[in-house]
């Protein structure tokens, strides 16, 4: 069991519905410029009105095609980008616009695990110093206590504590991701954004890392936002699943419901692409093949974003944006067709 630094002991406020993180109508538009004098001419709507609730101690999976804004959403939540609209409420506190020291203190409670374990580790720092840096910065531990903490962290992610003096390039991809996880755990955060933490790894190692994450969640009662395009991993790990398309969330539901009975045509299409391990079933499986490309986020379609590729689109979809509606079974969807 990892000892928790006393200063970081969080007061276990019980919020009303046990939601740790609530984001509402979150959006991030990157302005684009053109011409000799760089006039602003609109923007890329990377995140465009996203609503999500992440419950304490649970894992929310965020899935979608590449470029749909999942990673950006994760980064905006951690305030690595400044949102252009909406609110982020973490543990009852609005962190949408906090800055300076307040933000830095908040960072101790929210961490991120990155997709590329090689690039996210500073190549000129030893593993020990990478892990130690946030401890120094937040002035938590000193001297031997710090050393012990580093060893503990390495141990808890299944790495030999002797590795502390080595450089990142001396490790394999899986090991590096473990270092990244240890690094994220250093300040004992409550909430971790896992940004495709396994997609750069070998399949054999993917399961190890996912199991490690799961294990850590149980031991440390962590809350995850698990960003991935791997639907089977999401099914394995997550409690709730949100599906994103072109900067918007299409559907949000508990895992079992969404896998059994997807409501949104996009979710249906995505799930139909997941291979089934049984060859007979696999052969019989009906796939919904979406036509065309994802439209540009700089110039999204009117009405429903998905309508250009939706197999069941009708007139209303082009005119009216589907509302974010709550349906039975604590699930949410944004589709005119969904009942």
């Amino acid at each position: 069991m990892i000892s928790e630094p006393s200063t970081l002991k969080r007061d276990k406020r019980v919020s009303d519905d046990d939601v740790l993180l609530r984001i509402s109508n979150l959006s991030l538009h990157f302005p684009t410029y053109r011409g000799v004098f760089g006039r602003q001419d609109g923007g890329i709507r990377a995140v465009d009105g996203v609503n999500l609730d992440v419950r304490r101690g649970r894992t929310l999976g965020l899935v979608g095609e590449s470029g749909c804004g999942k990673t950006t959403t994760g980064r905006v939540i951690l305030r690595l980008y400044d949102p252009t609209g909406g609110r982020i409420v973490f543990d009852g506190e609005d962190i949408t616009h906090i800055g300076g020291n307040k933000l830095r203190r908040m960072r101790a409670r929210m961490q991120m695990i990155f997709q590329d374990p090689q690039a996210c580790l500073n190549p000129r720092m030893t593993v020990g110093s990478i892990i130690a840096e946030p401890l120094n910065e937040h002035g938590v531990l000193r001297g031997t206590e710090k050393e012990r903490r580093i060893c503990e962290l390495l141990d808890s992610v299944g790495l030999n504590p002797k590795f502390a003096n080595r450089y990142p390039h001396e490790f394999s991809g899986g090991q590096r991701q473990r270092i990244g996880i240890a690094r994220a755990l250093a300040l004992s955060p409550e909430f971790i954004v896992c940004d495709e933490p396994i997609s750069a790894l070998d399949v054999s190692i993917q399961a190890q890392v996912v199991n490690l994450l799961k294990d850590l969640q149980e031991r440390l009662s962590l809350t995850y936002l698990f960003i991935s395009h791997d639907l089977s991993m999401v099914r394995h790990l997550c409690d709730d699943v949100a599906v994103m398309y072109l900067g918007k969330v299409m559907e949000l539901a508990p895992r079992d419901l969404i896998y059994k009975n997807p409501m949104h045509p996009y979710t249906k299409a995505l799930l139909s692409a997941v291979p089934v391990p049984d060859p007979r079933l696999e052969r019989a499986r009906q796939r919904i093949v979406l036509k065309g490309d994802v439209p540009s986020p700089a110039d999204p379609p009117s009405g429903c974003r998905f309508r250009t590729r939706c197999p069941v689109a009708f007139d209303r979809c082009a005119v009216e944006q589907p509302a974010w509606r709550k349906l039975a079974g604590d699930r949410w969807v944004a589709c005119h067709r969904a009942e």
């Binding site: 980064r75 690595l80 500073n122 840096e133 946030p134 690094r183 300040l187």
Partner: peptide, 8 residues
């Protein structure tokens, strides 16, 4: 980004 996320 990691460094920023660490709260540096």
């Amino acid at each position: 980004r990691t460094a920023r996320a660490k709260g540096m």
